[in-house]
Design a protein around this nucleic acid. Sequence first.
DNA 1: GCCAACGTTGGC
DNA 2: GCCAACGTTGGC
Length: 150
Amino acid sequence: MNYWLLKTEPTTFSISDLKREKITSWEGVRNYQARNFLLEMQPGDVALIYHSSTAQPSVVGTANVVAEAYPDKTARQQKSQYYDPRSTVNKPIWYTVDIEFTSAFKTPVSLEHLKGDPFFADMMVIRPGMRLSIQPVSKKHFDHIIRLAH
DNA sequence: GCCAACGTTGGC
DNA sequence: GCCAACGTTGGC
């Protein structure tokens, strides 16, 4: 079982949207490194949902991975902002996974907190210039964030 | 809105 | 295969 952090801009898709939809396809990942992490994800893995590009960037909830990676259909939809003409049915480039809402934190754990807490000193998300939208997370970091959120 | 850090593209 | 130019991300 592995742990992940999934970034999203709340103006595009927020934890509230996930709560309402219950299960969603995590479409639109267009970065090879993030895609490779998507391909590693397995049902049973759990993820932190992180709001980026907002007043207080924070971990805001959790989700379960419920379907392993499969081709992202938006790559072949010309009207989609995620359209990529290089991706074909036979040779898809981009993938997505299905995740299921599990919780929205009453107390989000802010990036500011993570940066200030030595416990998270080696967490990927606090590294300056870290733009990766899908990141592996250690169990100890995951568990502690859950504890802080309660 | 600024801008640093990165990733991608494409000419050579 | 190098690298400059350009585009994107995302905190501030």
